[in-house]
């Protein structure tokens, strides 16, 4: 991966350890750059301009492709891919179950590989291709794994389902769906509290045995 120089620029002079926006602005070399006069600075403070400026400089540009669509965003470095998908892009199919990599509900594909989006900082997928549950079907045609989940009743409440399906597709692609035992082991990063596990395994086996490329 190339070093993205544009990432470095806006952070000059940033003092993130300081929580006060006002202090930040006083210290910031950016202030001189925008050449605010004292009067303007007071006005800016009154209208919370300081926070708006601070906010602009706390955010970094993030370019990624989500479900085939190029996205260009400004994000705080601390924002996870999960929260960016759900809160900024309104792609709420990807679920927050535990927010700590312990349940798999947030599973998405990054450059074709399944990962926990709750532990992925958004800024770190700059330039990558993301596939979420919303990107699996082709128009009205469901992905074979989605069809199989429907047929085998591979869910009840449906909350873990997007993560299960994204993981199931990856499980087959990785070549880890060769037996019931192997599927169970390689699906164990996806918790289903409703307990649809046997149905999910059946769905995956059917898709695998169907031989259609997933």
């Amino acid at each position: 991966m190339e070093d993205d120089k544009s990432l470095l620029k806006p952070q000059q002079g940033l003092h993130p350890e300081d929580n006060s926006r006002r202090n930040f602005l006083k210290q910031s070399t950016l202030l001189t750059a925008v050449a605010l006069t004292p009067v303007a600075a007071v006005k800016a403070a009154e209208s919370h301009m300081d926070e708006k400026i601070a906010e602009a400089f706390e955010k970094l540009p993030l370019k990624m492709e989500v479900n085939g669509v190029a996205k260009s965003l400004q994000v705080e470095p601390r924002a996870t891919l999960l929260d960016i998908l759900r809160e900024q892009l309104d792609l709420t199919g990807t679920k927050k179950g535990c927010d700590h990599g312990q349940c798999g509900a947030c599973t998405v594909h990054v450059d074709g590989h399944r990962v926990n989006s709750c532990l992925t900082l958004g800024i770190m997928v700059n330039g990558k291709k993301i596939t979420t549950i919303e990107g699996l079907a082709k128009g009205d045609d469901l992905h074979p794994m989605q069809e199989a989940f429907l047929k085998h009743d591979g869910f009840q409440c449906g909350y873990c389902t997007p993560g299960q399906i994204m993981s199931a597709v990856a499980c087959i692609r990785e070549g880890h769906a060769n037996s019931e035992m192997e599927i169970r082991e390689y699906m164990s990063g996806n918790i289903c509290r409703c307990g649809a596990y046997p149905n999910i395994v059946n769905a995956i086996q059917e898709v695998k045995e169907g031989g259609i490329a997933v």
Partner: peptide, 11 residues
């Protein structure tokens, strides 16, 4: 999580 600076040095 508090804010932090994020960098990706070239080498």
């Amino acid at each position: 999580m508090k804010q932090f600076q994020y960098i990706r040095p070239a080498t």
